[in-house]
Nucleic acid binder design. Structure first.
Lengths: 159, 159
DNA sequence: AAAAATAGGACAGTGATGTTGACGTATTAA
DNA sequence: TTAATACGTCAACATCACTGTCCTATTTTT
Protein backbone atom coordinates (compact mmCIF):
# COMPACT_ATOMS: atom_id res chain seq x y z
CA UNK A 1 0.00 0.00 0.00
CA UNK A 2 3.00 2.27 -0.29
CA UNK A 3 1.91 3.47 -3.69
CA UNK A 4 -1.30 5.36 -4.17
CA UNK A 5 -3.58 2.94 -5.91
CA UNK A 6 -5.84 4.31 -8.60
CA UNK A 7 -9.27 4.42 -7.07
CA UNK A 8 -11.30 1.60 -8.59
CA UNK A 9 -14.53 3.16 -7.38
CA UNK A 10 -16.47 5.76 -9.24
CA UNK A 11 -18.25 8.75 -7.79
CA UNK A 12 -21.50 6.87 -7.66
CA UNK A 13 -20.03 4.15 -5.45
CA UNK A 14 -18.69 6.75 -3.10
CA UNK A 15 -21.87 8.74 -2.86
CA UNK A 16 -23.80 5.57 -2.28
CA UNK A 17 -21.52 4.78 0.63
CA UNK A 18 -21.93 8.27 2.07
CA UNK A 19 -25.69 8.09 1.82
CA UNK A 20 -25.99 4.62 3.24
CA UNK A 21 -23.88 5.55 6.24
CA UNK A 22 -25.95 8.64 6.82
CA UNK A 23 -29.28 6.86 6.54
CA UNK A 24 -28.13 3.69 8.22
CA UNK A 25 -26.81 5.56 11.21
CA UNK A 26 -29.85 7.76 11.38
CA UNK A 27 -32.27 4.85 11.27
CA UNK A 28 -30.38 2.76 13.77
CA UNK A 29 -30.02 5.58 16.23
CA UNK A 30 -33.71 6.37 16.07
CA UNK A 31 -34.59 2.94 17.35
CA UNK A 32 -33.83 4.03 20.89
CA UNK A 33 -35.47 7.43 20.74
CA UNK A 34 -38.85 6.43 22.03
CA UNK A 35 -37.50 4.76 25.13
CA UNK A 36 -35.09 7.62 25.75
CA UNK A 37 -37.89 10.12 25.52
CA UNK A 38 -40.01 8.07 27.91
CA UNK A 39 -37.11 8.24 30.34
CA UNK A 40 -36.64 11.96 29.82
CA UNK A 41 -33.18 11.33 28.43
CA UNK A 42 -31.50 12.08 25.12
CA UNK A 43 -29.02 10.54 22.78
CA UNK A 44 -26.08 12.01 24.62
CA UNK A 45 -27.24 10.19 27.76
CA UNK A 46 -27.59 7.00 25.78
CA UNK A 47 -24.06 7.19 24.54
CA UNK A 48 -22.73 7.67 28.04
CA UNK A 49 -24.73 4.71 29.35
CA UNK A 50 -23.62 2.61 26.42
CA UNK A 51 -19.92 3.18 26.83
CA UNK A 52 -19.92 2.83 30.59
CA UNK A 53 -21.73 -0.44 30.14
CA UNK A 54 -19.15 -1.47 27.63
CA UNK A 55 -16.22 -0.50 29.80
CA UNK A 56 -17.20 -0.48 33.46
CA UNK A 57 -14.74 1.46 35.54
CA UNK A 58 -13.43 3.66 32.80
CA UNK A 59 -12.39 7.09 34.01
CA UNK A 60 -13.73 10.45 32.92
CA UNK A 61 -10.86 11.21 30.56
CA UNK A 62 -11.30 7.91 28.81
CA UNK A 63 -14.96 8.56 28.28
CA UNK A 64 -14.23 12.07 27.02
CA UNK A 65 -11.92 10.61 24.48
CA UNK A 66 -14.34 7.92 23.40
CA UNK A 67 -17.12 10.40 22.94
CA UNK A 68 -14.87 13.12 21.53
CA UNK A 69 -16.62 15.85 23.54
CA UNK A 70 -15.53 18.44 26.04
CA UNK A 71 -15.62 17.84 29.75
CA UNK A 72 -18.27 20.46 30.24
CA UNK A 73 -20.51 18.82 27.74
CA UNK A 74 -20.02 15.44 29.35
CA UNK A 75 -20.33 16.89 32.81
CA UNK A 76 -23.89 18.01 32.24
CA UNK A 77 -25.02 14.64 30.96
CA UNK A 78 -23.07 12.67 33.51
CA UNK A 79 -24.38 14.85 36.28
CA UNK A 80 -27.93 14.13 35.18
CA UNK A 81 -27.28 10.42 35.04
CA UNK A 82 -25.71 10.29 38.49
CA UNK A 83 -28.52 12.45 39.84
CA UNK A 84 -30.94 9.97 38.36
CA UNK A 85 -29.15 7.10 40.01
CA UNK A 86 -28.20 5.47 36.75
CA UNK A 87 -24.45 6.05 37.00
CA UNK A 88 -22.09 5.89 39.92
CA UNK A 89 -18.73 7.59 40.36
CA UNK A 90 -16.10 5.97 42.50
CA UNK A 91 -12.75 7.45 43.38
CA UNK A 92 -9.93 5.38 42.02
CA UNK A 93 -7.76 3.63 44.55
CA UNK A 94 -4.74 4.00 42.28
CA UNK A 95 -5.13 7.72 41.69
CA UNK A 96 -7.46 9.62 43.95
CA UNK A 97 -7.92 12.32 41.38
CA UNK A 98 -9.73 9.94 39.08
CA UNK A 99 -13.39 9.06 39.05
CA UNK A 100 -14.26 5.63 37.80
CA UNK A 101 -17.62 5.25 36.14
CA UNK A 102 -20.07 2.42 36.71
CA UNK A 103 -23.67 1.79 35.90
CA UNK A 104 -25.99 1.22 38.81
CA UNK A 105 -28.35 -1.76 38.55
CA UNK A 106 -31.04 0.62 37.32
CA UNK A 107 -28.61 2.07 34.82
CA UNK A 108 -27.66 -1.37 33.60
CA UNK A 109 -31.30 -2.34 33.20
CA UNK A 110 -31.99 0.72 31.12
CA UNK A 111 -28.88 0.32 29.00
CA UNK A 112 -29.85 -3.25 28.40
CA UNK A 113 -33.27 -2.24 27.18
CA UNK A 114 -31.79 0.43 24.93
CA UNK A 115 -29.37 -2.11 23.59
CA UNK A 116 -32.30 -4.35 22.85
CA UNK A 117 -33.87 -1.58 20.79
CA UNK A 118 -30.79 -1.24 18.63
CA UNK A 119 -29.90 -4.86 18.48
CA UNK A 120 -33.24 -6.04 17.18
CA UNK A 121 -32.75 -3.76 14.20
CA UNK A 122 -29.11 -4.51 13.63
CA UNK A 123 -29.40 -8.24 13.98
CA UNK A 124 -32.30 -8.20 11.55
CA UNK A 125 -30.09 -6.27 9.14
CA UNK A 126 -27.30 -8.81 9.55
CA UNK A 127 -29.75 -11.58 8.86
CA UNK A 128 -31.34 -9.88 5.90
CA UNK A 129 -28.06 -8.99 4.28
CA UNK A 130 -26.59 -12.38 5.08
CA UNK A 131 -23.73 -13.60 7.25
CA UNK A 132 -21.21 -13.12 4.54
CA UNK A 133 -21.87 -9.38 4.47
CA UNK A 134 -20.83 -8.76 8.05
CA UNK A 135 -17.04 -8.93 7.78
CA UNK A 136 -17.05 -6.47 4.88
CA UNK A 137 -19.32 -4.15 6.78
CA UNK A 138 -16.99 -4.22 9.76
CA UNK A 139 -13.90 -3.82 7.65
CA UNK A 140 -15.01 -0.68 5.87
CA UNK A 141 -16.34 1.02 8.96
CA UNK A 142 -13.13 0.16 10.77
CA UNK A 143 -11.16 1.70 7.93
CA UNK A 144 -13.10 4.92 8.29
CA UNK A 145 -11.83 5.36 11.80
CA UNK A 146 -8.69 7.42 12.13
CA UNK A 147 -5.65 5.34 12.98
CA UNK A 148 -5.10 7.00 16.32
CA UNK A 149 -8.58 6.00 17.48
CA UNK A 150 -8.69 2.45 16.26
CA UNK A 151 -6.98 0.89 19.25
CA UNK A 152 -9.38 2.68 21.55
CA UNK A 153 -12.37 1.41 19.62
CA UNK A 154 -11.01 -2.09 19.39
CA UNK A 155 -10.31 -2.10 23.12
CA UNK A 156 -14.08 -1.89 23.67
CA UNK A 157 -14.26 -5.43 22.46
CA UNK A 158 -11.56 -6.61 24.81
CA UNK A 159 -13.66 -6.49 27.99
CA UNK B 1 -37.81 -15.42 5.39
CA UNK B 2 -41.30 -16.02 6.67
CA UNK B 3 -40.05 -17.72 9.82
CA UNK B 4 -38.07 -15.86 12.39
CA UNK B 5 -34.56 -17.21 12.06
CA UNK B 6 -32.61 -17.77 15.25
CA UNK B 7 -30.08 -14.98 15.38
CA UNK B 8 -26.67 -16.43 14.57
CA UNK B 9 -24.92 -13.39 15.97
CA UNK B 10 -23.96 -12.93 19.55
CA UNK B 11 -24.12 -9.78 21.60
CA UNK B 12 -20.52 -8.99 20.87
CA UNK B 13 -21.13 -8.99 17.11
CA UNK B 14 -24.04 -6.65 17.56
CA UNK B 15 -22.26 -4.25 19.83
CA UNK B 16 -19.33 -4.19 17.48
CA UNK B 17 -21.65 -3.23 14.67
CA UNK B 18 -23.25 -0.48 16.75
CA UNK B 19 -19.88 0.92 17.70
CA UNK B 20 -18.43 0.79 14.24
CA UNK B 21 -21.42 2.59 12.80
CA UNK B 22 -21.18 5.25 15.48
CA UNK B 23 -17.45 5.79 15.06
CA UNK B 24 -17.43 5.33 11.31
CA UNK B 25 -20.18 7.89 10.82
CA UNK B 26 -18.57 10.27 13.26
CA UNK B 27 -15.17 10.08 11.63
CA UNK B 28 -16.49 10.37 8.10
CA UNK B 29 -18.67 13.34 8.91
CA UNK B 30 -15.82 15.15 10.56
CA UNK B 31 -13.85 15.18 7.36
CA UNK B 32 -15.88 18.11 6.11
CA UNK B 33 -15.96 20.10 9.31
CA UNK B 34 -12.94 22.25 8.68
CA UNK B 35 -14.15 23.43 5.30
CA UNK B 36 -17.63 24.02 6.63
CA UNK B 37 -16.29 26.09 9.46
CA UNK B 38 -14.16 28.11 7.08
CA UNK B 39 -17.33 28.85 5.13
CA UNK B 40 -19.27 29.71 8.26
CA UNK B 41 -21.61 26.81 7.63
CA UNK B 42 -22.56 23.72 9.62
CA UNK B 43 -23.42 20.13 9.05
CA UNK B 44 -27.06 20.86 8.45
CA UNK B 45 -26.03 23.14 5.58
CA UNK B 46 -23.82 20.45 4.21
CA UNK B 47 -26.63 17.93 4.17
CA UNK B 48 -28.85 20.34 2.28
CA UNK B 49 -26.15 21.08 -0.29
CA UNK B 50 -25.44 17.39 -0.65
CA UNK B 51 -28.96 16.29 -1.36
CA UNK B 52 -29.77 19.16 -3.69
CA UNK B 53 -26.63 18.28 -5.60
CA UNK B 54 -27.76 14.71 -5.69
CA UNK B 55 -31.26 15.52 -6.85
CA UNK B 56 -31.35 18.89 -8.57
CA UNK B 57 -34.86 20.24 -8.81
CA UNK B 58 -36.27 18.35 -5.87
CA UNK B 59 -39.00 20.22 -4.04
CA UNK B 60 -39.06 21.32 -0.44
CA UNK B 61 -41.26 18.46 0.74
CA UNK B 62 -38.98 15.93 -0.83
CA UNK B 63 -35.99 17.42 0.92
CA UNK B 64 -37.85 17.49 4.22
CA UNK B 65 -38.53 13.85 3.85
CA UNK B 66 -34.99 12.96 2.90
CA UNK B 67 -33.58 14.85 5.84
CA UNK B 68 -36.37 13.82 8.20
CA UNK B 69 -36.61 17.30 9.73
CA UNK B 70 -39.35 19.86 10.14
CA UNK B 71 -39.93 22.62 7.66
CA UNK B 72 -39.00 25.24 10.20
CA UNK B 73 -35.67 23.61 10.81
CA UNK B 74 -34.98 23.32 7.10
CA UNK B 75 -36.25 26.79 6.44
CA UNK B 76 -33.57 28.40 8.52
CA UNK B 77 -30.76 26.52 6.85
CA UNK B 78 -32.19 26.86 3.39
CA UNK B 79 -32.75 30.56 3.95
CA UNK B 80 -29.11 30.97 4.86
CA UNK B 81 -27.98 29.07 1.82
CA UNK B 82 -30.14 31.07 -0.57
CA UNK B 83 -29.04 34.27 1.14
CA UNK B 84 -25.47 33.17 0.58
CA UNK B 85 -26.13 32.54 -3.08
CA UNK B 86 -25.41 28.84 -2.84
CA UNK B 87 -28.95 27.60 -3.48
CA UNK B 88 -31.64 28.82 -5.78
CA UNK B 89 -35.41 28.34 -5.51
CA UNK B 90 -37.49 28.21 -8.64
CA UNK B 91 -41.24 28.01 -8.78
CA UNK B 92 -42.39 24.80 -10.43
CA UNK B 93 -44.12 25.15 -13.77
CA UNK B 94 -46.28 22.13 -12.99
CA UNK B 95 -47.44 23.32 -9.60
CA UNK B 96 -46.90 26.94 -8.74
CA UNK B 97 -47.04 26.18 -5.06
CA UNK B 98 -43.83 24.23 -5.22
CA UNK B 99 -40.30 25.48 -4.99
CA UNK B 100 -37.70 23.49 -6.82
CA UNK B 101 -34.22 23.54 -5.37
CA UNK B 102 -31.01 23.93 -7.31
CA UNK B 103 -27.42 24.65 -6.47
CA UNK B 104 -25.92 27.78 -7.94
CA UNK B 105 -22.50 27.42 -9.57
CA UNK B 106 -20.96 28.60 -6.30
CA UNK B 107 -23.05 26.11 -4.40
CA UNK B 108 -22.02 23.32 -6.72
CA UNK B 109 -18.37 24.24 -6.35
CA UNK B 110 -18.61 24.13 -2.59
CA UNK B 111 -20.56 20.87 -2.56
CA UNK B 112 -17.98 19.37 -4.82
CA UNK B 113 -15.18 20.34 -2.48
CA UNK B 114 -17.06 18.95 0.49
CA UNK B 115 -17.68 15.77 -1.42
CA UNK B 116 -13.97 15.60 -2.07
CA UNK B 117 -13.33 15.78 1.68
CA UNK B 118 -15.59 12.81 2.35
CA UNK B 119 -14.69 10.81 -0.68
CA UNK B 120 -10.98 10.79 -0.07
CA UNK B 121 -11.64 9.13 3.27
CA UNK B 122 -14.29 6.73 2.07
CA UNK B 123 -12.47 5.62 -1.04
CA UNK B 124 -9.38 5.01 1.07
CA UNK B 125 -11.52 2.89 3.37
CA UNK B 126 -12.90 0.92 0.42
CA UNK B 127 -9.39 0.35 -0.80
CA UNK B 128 -8.04 -0.59 2.59
CA UNK B 129 -10.83 -3.00 3.37
CA UNK B 130 -10.77 -4.41 -0.15
CA UNK B 131 -13.23 -4.41 -3.03
CA UNK B 132 -14.92 -7.52 -1.79
CA UNK B 133 -16.01 -5.76 1.38
CA UNK B 134 -18.08 -3.11 -0.34
CA UNK B 135 -21.19 -5.09 -1.29
CA UNK B 136 -21.53 -6.39 2.25
CA UNK B 137 -21.12 -2.92 3.62
CA UNK B 138 -23.85 -1.61 1.36
CA UNK B 139 -26.13 -4.53 2.04
CA UNK B 140 -26.12 -4.18 5.80
CA UNK B 141 -26.53 -0.44 5.80
CA UNK B 142 -29.38 -0.77 3.31
CA UNK B 143 -31.02 -3.28 5.59
CA UNK B 144 -30.89 -0.84 8.44
CA UNK B 145 -33.07 1.59 6.55
CA UNK B 146 -36.78 1.27 7.22
CA UNK B 147 -38.67 -0.25 4.31
CA UNK B 148 -40.72 2.85 3.68
CA UNK B 149 -37.58 4.92 3.13
CA UNK B 150 -35.60 2.56 0.99
CA UNK B 151 -37.13 3.54 -2.31
CA UNK B 152 -36.45 7.17 -1.53
CA UNK B 153 -32.83 6.45 -0.75
CA UNK B 154 -32.38 4.25 -3.77
CA UNK B 155 -33.92 6.90 -5.99
CA UNK B 156 -30.93 9.12 -5.19
CA UNK B 157 -28.90 6.79 -7.31
CA UNK B 158 -31.29 6.97 -10.20
CA UNK B 159 -30.25 10.46 -11.36
C1' DA C 1 10.23 20.04 50.05
C1' DA C 2 8.53 22.88 46.54
C1' DA C 3 6.99 23.56 41.99
C1' DA C 4 4.68 21.84 38.11
C1' DA C 5 1.43 19.01 36.01
C1' DT C 6 -2.81 16.57 36.04
C1' DA C 7 -7.83 14.94 37.00
C1' DG C 8 -11.98 16.45 37.66
C1' DG C 9 -15.53 19.82 38.75
C1' DA C 10 -18.03 24.11 38.45
C1' DC C 11 -19.64 28.60 36.54
C1' DA C 12 -21.12 31.24 32.58
C1' DG C 13 -22.20 32.40 28.16
C1' DT C 14 -22.82 31.15 23.41
C1' DG C 15 -23.92 28.58 19.18
C1' DA C 16 -25.88 24.92 15.89
C1' DT C 17 -29.66 22.48 14.92
C1' DG C 18 -33.75 20.37 16.08
C1' DT C 19 -38.91 20.65 17.89
C1' DT C 20 -43.76 22.37 18.67
C1' DG C 21 -47.57 25.51 17.90
C1' DA C 22 -49.76 28.91 15.32
C1' DC C 23 -50.86 31.71 11.45
C1' DG C 24 -51.04 33.15 6.64
C1' DT C 25 -51.08 33.28 1.32
C1' DA C 26 -51.30 31.18 -3.00
C1' DT C 27 -52.39 27.33 -5.61
C1' DT C 28 -54.43 22.94 -6.72
C1' DA C 29 -57.78 19.26 -6.10
C1' DA C 30 -62.24 17.72 -4.82
C1' DT D 1 -67.14 26.78 -4.09
C1' DT D 2 -64.88 24.44 -0.55
C1' DA D 3 -61.21 21.76 1.09
C1' DA D 4 -56.64 20.37 0.84
C1' DT D 5 -51.93 21.25 -0.05
C1' DA D 6 -47.21 23.66 -0.58
C1' DC D 7 -44.60 26.75 1.32
C1' DG D 8 -43.28 30.50 4.31
C1' DT D 9 -43.04 33.01 8.66
C1' DC D 10 -43.01 34.05 13.65
C1' DA D 11 -41.87 32.60 18.26
C1' DA D 12 -40.37 30.02 21.93
C1' DC D 13 -38.06 26.23 23.55
C1' DA D 14 -34.96 21.96 23.82
C1' DT D 15 -30.78 19.22 23.08
C1' DC D 16 -26.24 19.02 22.93
C1' DA D 17 -22.07 20.91 21.82
C1' DC D 18 -18.31 24.66 22.42
C1' DT D 19 -15.04 28.22 24.64
C1' DG D 20 -13.02 30.50 28.55
C1' DT D 21 -12.09 30.75 33.29
C1' DC D 22 -11.34 29.38 37.83
C1' DC D 23 -10.66 26.10 41.66
C1' DT D 24 -9.31 22.02 44.67
C1' DA D 25 -7.03 17.86 45.34
C1' DT D 26 -3.68 14.76 43.98
C1' DT D 27 0.31 13.06 41.63
C1' DT D 28 4.63 13.78 39.30
C1' DT D 29 8.71 16.22 38.57
C1' DT D 30 12.35 19.10 39.89
Amino acid sequence: MADPIPCPFNESDIRRGIELIYFGYSHLTRMADQRLETQGLGRAHHRVLYFISRQPGLNVSELLRLLNVTKQSLSRVLGELTQRGLVELRTSAQDRRQRLLFLTPDGATLESALFGDLSSRLSAAYAEAGNESVPGFWAILTSLIAEEDRAMVQALDGG
